[in-house]
Every structure is written in structure tokens, then in C-alpha cells.
Design a binder for these strands. Structure first.
Lengths: 213, 213
DNA sequence: TTGACATAAAATGTATACATTTTATATTAG
DNA sequence: CTAATATAAAATGTATACATTTTATGTCAA
């Protein structure tokens, strides 16, 4: 049941795994034949993925698989940098210990599971951040951030070094939680800012190297 | 032809004109019967409007017409405040005189047409701002801003005082263009910030009065 | 009366069929 | 040979029909 969700996830995964190459134009019929579902389902999945940046409109017919660019990654990182510290700032005043606990559980789970696909790791990472921002009580801000992370996620399958960075990231996450638990919100926001900038810089740098190779 | 676009605009307008009241749940069948189109078309229009905040998901079936709240307006304004000065900052370095000219033409048109519906006025206002931001070369930022303005637009039909504020707004727009034309980007960004904050404060204040009445 | 359960009604998801638009192909006039 | 145009192929938009899920209704036992 719920073929729409199924196809949505399948198609997203296949794009990430480069089963459909960047630049390729995917038509409704093509996908409907390939996945053996009706075009209606394909249409819905395509629209959903377009809203999340996994596909881009291509003239009148078909949708195109977008490529990767350092400039885009840099833009996405800049937007995160502009919005996430703000979210945390508004969230700290209402944050509960139960939320901190949730975040700690998730962090423990992430560090424990050492064989995650980049996609899953990215998703869990976003869930961790979202727990921290949740209590900011700004639904639109949270929605924009969710979108941004969706689009960043597109790059994660690409980024081999995620593994190497995972330890640093987890350590910073732990420190962030510690600062929040002790009510040191100023330092927490500063650390978060540095954390996002760092991850973004690594990704952008890596993309530049790829591009020149 | 293109019934989808037609229904999309019609439904959006009918929501803004409160033909469909806030809180009401709109089902596919209901709308399909009312507008005499197929449910497929309704589905597409509903999804598009949901992505823009004109409708919100309502459990498993139907979509709900959202209400208005000062808190939401304040949030939207805060996000504009956080992102638009940034967009202008990145845009000024690449801005061309032809773009400034476009903006001036649009401003002249807006001030000349004195009998615009709130909806049209809001749309033109966004187009003016977008011209200024265009050359920032940050497609995702521009997309987020377009979304934000879409959602702010929902409040414009509501705001009677828009007429009174129109003159102030136009004057500030003119001053903004003047500053940009003379390369005074620092002051331009500062003015833009004040401009957005001002408009937001007025709207929020007005909503609070409405709420208490 | 209340609550659980069976049943009917209604709404949405999905597939197929048809209409329209777009795109590619081939043909012909210049 | 080029360019414009007519024509065929393919893709999307839209409507209808069917399947599944959800929601409301009503009955019956405790």
C-alpha cells in the first residue's frame, strides 16, 4: 500500500546512488515503466522531490536530475549559518531536559552505529539538530531548515570523507549538549555556528578538489 | 486550457477573500464539485497551495484553511529580516543599471496605479524587491524569499491599513534605489532592514489589535 | 447509558483511457 | 543544402473508473 511513499523513497535513493545520472531528464512515462507504477504516482513523487531539490524543472516536459556544484553547497551552508544559530537562540529559553535527553539518546545511537549509509547518517544528523531547535516555536523557520537539510543531504552520498569527519562532529555535538545542559547558551550558539561553518567548509573544499580533478 | 493553473489561482483568491473560511476543511471531492473540475486538478492545486502555506494538512483527509496569528506574522517578518538584507548585500556587487532601471519602472507603475487589490499590490511589492536581490546569484535564497513572501501575502488582504502605508513604502523604495544608484550599499542595506522591520511591526501591531477586539 | 464492533458511506489512492500539447521527423519549396 | 512546414510520435494534462482506506452510523451486549 501507499505506493506513492514507496516510489518517493525509491526514486530519491536511486538519484542519490547515481542510478539516474546528473543531467538526465526523467519523464513520467519512463519512470512509470521502469518502476511499474502508474504515471499518477510518478507525478506526485516527482513534484515532492522537486520541492526538495532532488529534481529540477526541465522546460515543458520531464524533470532533470541536478548536478553538484561547490557554489550551491556554499550557498546552502551560508543559509544554514544564517538560520540555525537563530533557531537555537530562540529555542534555548524553552528547552526542556527531556529534549536534551532525547538528543543525547540520539547522539549515543549515532556514535554506536558505525556502519550507516551516508544518507542515513545525514538524516540522523538532521534529527539531532532539529530536536535542539524544536522548542523555538517557529514552525516556518523549522520548515525552511528541514528543506535546507534535504538539499544538503543530496551531497552526502557524494562525500566520502563523512566517515573521517564523523568523530569530530560527534564530539562537537556532545560538547554542544553539555553547554546547553549547563545553561551556557551564548557559548552553545557560538559553537553551533562554528560547527556548521566547519562542516560546510569541508564539503565545499572537497567539491572544489573534485571539480579540478 | 491549463485548468490546473486556473484552479490554482481561483482557489488561492477565494481563500484570500475568505470565501472559504479559516479553519474549514476542504476535501478534494467538495472542491471538484464546486469548481466543476476533476479531482486530479484539485489535488495538484491543493498540493501547490500547501507548499506555499495557503492550506495546511489536516490528518489523513482534506486540507485546512489556516487562520491568522500575530505570532506567525512576527515569525515571517523575522525571517525576512534575517535573509533579505543578506540577499541585498550579495546582490549589490553585481547589480547593473539596467536592473535599477527595471526597479524604477516598476516603482513608477506601482505609485501610478492607485486602485490595486491588496493581493496585486503585495505581488508587485515582492517583484520590486526581487529585482534588487536577483543579482545575488543565490537561487536557493531567492526561492526561500519567494516562499516567505507568498506566505506574507496571505496577510495582505487582511490588512486595511496597507493603503495608508503605501506612500511611506513607496518613498522608502525610492530612497533605496537612490542609495543603490550612488553605490552607497551600506546605507541601502540598513534602510532595507529598517523598511522590513517597520512594515512587519505595523502588521503585527494591527493583528494584535484585531485579536483583542 | 455506554462502549465496542459491524456496517455503510464517503474520501482518497491508484490505474486506465482519452485529449491536448509538445517534440521529433521527414518532406518539399526555395 | 537550407529552412520552413506538415506530419507522426511521444509526452503531459485531464477525466473517469476502480480499489483501498478512512470516517461516520447504527446496533447490540454489558
Amino acid at each position: 500500500m501507499l505506493k506513492k511513499q514507496q516510489l518517493y523513497h525509491q526514486l530519491k535513493q536511486d538519484i542519490q546512488l547515481q542510478h539516474w545520472a546528473a543531467g538526465q531528464v526523467l519523464t513520467q512515462q519512463q519512470l512509470a515503466r521502469h518502476y511499474a507504477v502508474s504515471r499518477i504516482v510518478v507525478r506526485d513523487a516527482q513534484h515532492a522531490l522537486m520541492n526538495e531539490g532532488w529534481l529540477v524543472a526541465h522546460g515543458k516536459a520531464g524533470m532533470q536530475v541536478p548536478g553538484f556544484s561547490a557554489a550551491e553547497a556554499e550557498e546552502l551552508c551560508m543559509l544554514r549559518l544564517q538560520l540555525e544559530p537563530l533557531a537555537l537562540q530562540h529555542a534555548v529559553t524553552n528547552m526542556s531536559f527531556s529534549q536534551l535527553g532525547q538528543a543525547e539518546d540520539l547522539l549515543a545511537y549515532i556514535t554506536a552505529s558505525n556502519s550507516l549509509a551516508p544518507y542515513q547518517r545525514g538524516e540522523l544528523n538532521w534529527q539531532f539538530h532539529r530536536i535542539l531547535y524544536q522548542s523555538c516555536a517557529k514552525p516556518h523557520l523549522l520548515r525552511l531548515l528541514a528543506q535546507l537539510h534535504q538539499q544538503v543531504a543530496r551531497y552526502l552520498g557524494y562525500q566520502e570523507q563523512v566517515q573521517a569527519y564523523a568523530d569530530t562532529s560527534a564530539a562537537e555535538h556532545a560538547e554542544l549538549l553539555s553547554l546547553l545542559r549547563h545553561g551556557n547558551s551564548g557559548l552553545a550558539v557560538a559553537l553551533l555556528t562554528r560547527h556548521i561553518a566547519e562542516a560546510g567548509a569541508l564539503l565545499v573544499q572537497w567539491l572544489h578538489k573534485q571539480q579540478s580533478a
